[in-house]
Write a protein that binds this DNA or RNA. Structure first.
Length: 480
RNA sequence: GCGGAAGUAGCUCAAUUGGUAGAGCGAUAGCCUUCCAAGCUAUAGGUCGCGAGUUCGAGACUCGUCUUCCGCUCCA
């Protein structure tokens, strides 16, 4: 465990030192739990996003993409249930100025009762609380806290404020005059942008059920605690796909996407034993089945992607709130219905962290002359590596840089290349290992005679001589 | 949010009892022309996280504050 924690620290340091991830606004001491992606990080993130996008849309003829706005009509979030469910009643103690979730302090009392053997009393208390929460009876909740004499653990007093709703959605005002009616939210999930466009997409792209709509984009949640580097951030990017299906077929499609999405992860060469499914016991308000695909991060198994069977909850509610029919006419069975939905939702930032965790390695070995040698290598899969190819003239004399630049010009329209003539060749290889460049090509004096170059492979450190004319094809062949 | 720890150059760390802020690595430029880091020369880079206080004098002591990490908490 200790070594894993160290490894996590090393990954974070490495990410900063080599231009993958910086703390946001670092010159102002940073902004808590907000991060910026650097030169190599932004490339890697883009490549992960593109790889997902191609796999979802290009490789599935029945899935199309959209790019919806972050701002949405306020009613969207009433229909989706976020206004009611994405928030928790809170209460503040006036003496200590501490804020608590109401259900937590009441559950705390129930636990105390249980530990005193008063099981039935504890159950009765929780039942009472659930009824009040369901009825949104905030005054009743406050009474409950007072009559049970629940005290603040800091000030040890009962001097409470009223119970208030604390929303986990970020809000802002649209328009230059701040009025209640103009209050809008930053989307807490990208999914709703897909649901409200269901009819537009289905009609314009002439989609037939079953079909999917994919989208990537930023979402915002005002988490009480955001931690663990880029794992839990208040601003994050999702890659989501909503798959619309005939009601009653949700079980089989749920199973299908559960398996298909794991295959996507494995296609990046991640070891299968690092993944596991985690079925949700407590289901969210919209779901009739849900699971997480978890990855073993240095800090334990954590969710990377969620597969949710969302039923017709979202479309049905948008139909209710908007008054627009969110229906599909199915020719095969000659019926109108509101489609059911299977959602696959993956956190791009989490996937990024997964790739860093999986790729980062420190290697040590003994050289032929008996001295120790080592390197830090990022074994990032070639298809998503920030740089694909480094082109290195062995020396900067004898016209070698000219040949190298010629190869550079041949390759750079097709993939990201990097040119470097500074320092010894070994040092340049190490630098490329540290940012995960899968291929290095060296131009030497022999190149001038027979047009061959040395290609060096990052993972094996093996090298071989190939004709310079084959470099582009070789790299491209390994990018898919 | 609570508790604990930490913050000095890009990184890792020094600086005696409170007395002029240093090294290695890295970076940049040049030399060398070398197929797996750590050869030579030079240069740049720091209001010691920030703000007060004590003191003739603070990187060091005191208080506050910010940030990060760990644990708890939270987590659609």
């Amino acid at each position: 465990m200790t070594t894993n924690e160290n490894k996590f620290q090393e990954i974070i340091s490495h990410a900063k030192e080599y231009g993958f991830v910086f703390p946001s606004s670092e010159i102002y001491d940073g902004l808590s739990a907000v991060y910026d992606y650097g030169p190599y990080g932004s490339e890697l993130k883009k490549n992960i996003r593109d790889y997902w996008w191609r796999w979802m849309t290009q490789m599935n003829e029945n899935i199309v993409g959209i790019d919806a706005a972050i701002f949405m009509h306020p009613t969207t979030w009433k229909a989706s249930g976020h206004v009611d469910n994405f928030s928790d009643p809170m209460i503040d103690n006036k003496d200590s100025n501490k804020r608590y979730r109401v259900d937590h302090i009441i559950e705390g009392l129930a636990d105390t009762l249980r530990s005193e053997g008063k099981e039935t009393e504890a159950d009765k208390l929780l039942a009472e609380m659930d009824a009040l929460l369901a009825a949104e009876d905030f005054a009743g909740l406050k009474d409950l806290i007072y009559t049970r004499n629940i005290k603040c653990s800091v000030s040890n007093t009962c001097n409470w404020t009223d119970v208030r709703q604390f929303n986990l959605m970020f809000s802002t005002e649209i328009g230059s005059v701040a009025e209640e009616a103009d209050k809008i939210y930053l989307r807490p999930e990208t999914a709703q942008g897909i649901f409200v466009n269901f009819l537009n997409v289905q009609k314009t792209a002439r989609m037939k059920i079953p079909f999917g709509i994919a989208q990537t984009g930023k979402a915002f949640r005002n988490e009480i605690v955001a931690r663990q580097f880029i794992f839990r951030m208040r601003e994050f990017e999702q890659m989501e796909m909503q798959f619309f299906i005939r009601p009653g077929t949700q079980k089989e499609w749920y199973e299908y996407w559960k398996e298909a999405r794991l295959q996507w992860h494995l296609s990046l060469g991640v070891k299968p034993e690092k993944y596991r499914y985690h079925d949700h016991v407590k289901l969210a308000h919209y779901a009739d089945a849900a699971l997480d695909i978890e990855y073993e991060f240095p800090f334990g198994f954590k969710e990377v992607e969620g597969i949710h069977s969302r039923t017709d909850f979202d479309l049905k509610n948008h139909q209710l709130y908007s008054g627009k029919k969110m229906q599909y006419f199915d020719n095969e069975i000659n019926q109108n219905y509101i489609p059911y939905v299977i959602e696959t939702s993956i956190g791009l930032d989490r996937m990024f962290l997964l790739i860093l965790s999986e790729s980062y390695a420190e290697e040590k070995w003994t050289k032929e002359d008996g001295t120790a040698d080592s390197r830090v290598v990022m074994r990032i899969p070639a298809k998503i590596a920030p740089l694909k190819l480094a082109i290195l003239p062995l020396t900067k004399k004898d016209g070698l840089p000219d040949i190298a630049k010629e190869l550079m010009n041949q390759c750079k329209p097709f993939f990201r290349c990097f040119y470097e003539e500074k320092d010894t060749i070994g040092k340049r290889y190490r630098r490329m290992d540290a940012i995960g460049t899968p291929y290095c090509v060296t131009i030497d004096h022999q190149t001038k005679e027979d047009q061959t170059v040395t290609i060096r492979y990052r993972d094996s450190m093996q090298q071989e001589r190939i004709p310079m004319s084959q470099v582009r094809e070789l790299v491209q062949a390994n990018m898919l």
